[in-house]
Simulated scan of single mutants.
Amino acid sequence: MDLDDDLPPADPAAALQLIREQRVATARRLEPDARILYWPWGVAWLVGFGLFFLRFSPDDRVLVRLPDWLPLTVLFVLLAVAAVIQAVAGARAYGQVSGNSSRRGLWYGCSWALGSVSVYAALGRVTNHLPHDLAALLWSATAVGLTGALHMAGGAIWLDRNLFRLGVWISVINVIGAFAGPGWHALVIALAGGGGILTAGVLGRLRQRRRQ
């Protein structure tokens, strides 16, 4: 074994290059690919809400005859798959991180879980008294609104401008879709919401490559 390999570089330029390489390697290990974090959610919204629009179009029209249960089932399955992918990617990347960063991530995840359960429990008590189209609009608009708010909260916690902007975008299009009404909301969320999340993944990956 050559002991010289363990010595620091004598050349300052080589030392700086070694530091840069170590930083890049650490960033790659601790920061998941942005596409893995965003694209599964974007696909879930694009496909799931897209099926809702095709089956439950405005004015009670049916553009594509699908079983009533199919859009919601597909959406829930795709959302569950996206959640698993993000959980695995996050565990691999942040499993070595401790301290305040780890605590923030844990509390933020609990906010998603408990916030969703509490909102959906309240909705379940109300929507049975509404027509089907308004009940569906209330469910989807509330879920999307909660998502936008938590994205903005996450951006504020980690000072992540891009995550905050995505939350603002989701919140704005949710308002537009809600005012447009049943059927149209699903189309807006599928195209602008799902497409926006997919775009956020692309932009996030480009920024990661520039940093690396």
Score class of each variant (00 low, 15 high):
72 L>P: 08
73 T>Y: 05
73 T>D: 05
73 T>M: 10
74 V>S: 09
75 L>I: 08
76 F>D: 05
77 V>C: 01
78 L>I: 08
79 L>K: 02
81 V>I: 15
82 A>F: 04
83 A>S: 11
84 V>C: 07
84 V>M: 06
90 G>A: 01
91 A>R: 14
91 A>D: 01
92 R>L: 00
92 R>W: 01
93 A>Y: 04
94 Y>M: 07
94 Y>I: 07
95 G>F: 00
97 V>E: 05
97 V>R: 09
97 V>P: 04
98 S>V: 10
98 S>L: 09
99 G>Y: 10
99 G>T: 06
101 S>L: 09
102 S>W: 05
103 R>Y: 06
103 R>D: 06
103 R>V: 03
104 R>L: 10
105 G>H: 03
105 G>W: 02
106 L>S: 10
106 L>H: 14
106 L>Y: 12
107 W>H: 09
108 Y>M: 10
108 Y>G: 07
109 G>C: 07
110 C>T: 07
110 C>H: 11
111 S>E: 07
113 A>Q: 02
114 L>K: 02
115 G>D: 05
115 G>P: 08
116 S>K: 05
119 V>S: 14
119 V>I: 15
120 Y>G: 00
120 Y>T: 04
121 A>V: 01
121 A>G: 08
122 A>C: 11
123 L>E: 11
125 R>K: 14
126 V>I: 15
127 T>C: 05
127 T>P: 07
128 N>M: 09
130 L>T: 01
131 P>G: 06
132 H>G: 00
133 D>E: 12
133 D>V: 04
133 D>A: 06
134 L>T: 10
134 L>Q: 14
135 A>E: 01
135 A>I: 02
137 L>A: 02
138 L>P: 11
139 W>R: 15
139 W>H: 14
140 S>Y: 15
140 S>I: 14
141 A>K: 10
141 A>N: 13
142 T>D: 12
143 A>S: 15
144 V>G: 01
145 G>N: 04
145 G>C: 05
146 L>R: 15
146 L>K: 13
146 L>G: 07
147 T>W: 10
148 G>E: 15
149 A>L: 15
150 L>M: 13
150 L>Q: 12
152 M>Q: 15
154 G>P: 10
154 G>F: 11
155 G>T: 06
156 A>T: 12
156 A>G: 04
158 W>G: 02
159 L>A: 07
160 D>E: 09
160 D>V: 02
161 R>E: 13
162 N>H: 12
162 N>A: 10
162 N>T: 09
163 L>I: 07
163 L>Y: 02
163 L>E: 03
164 F>Q: 05
166 L>Q: 05
167 G>D: 13
168 V>K: 04
168 V>T: 08
168 V>M: 09
169 W>T: 01
170 I>H: 06
170 I>E: 05
171 S>V: 11
171 S>F: 11
171 S>A: 15
172 V>K: 00
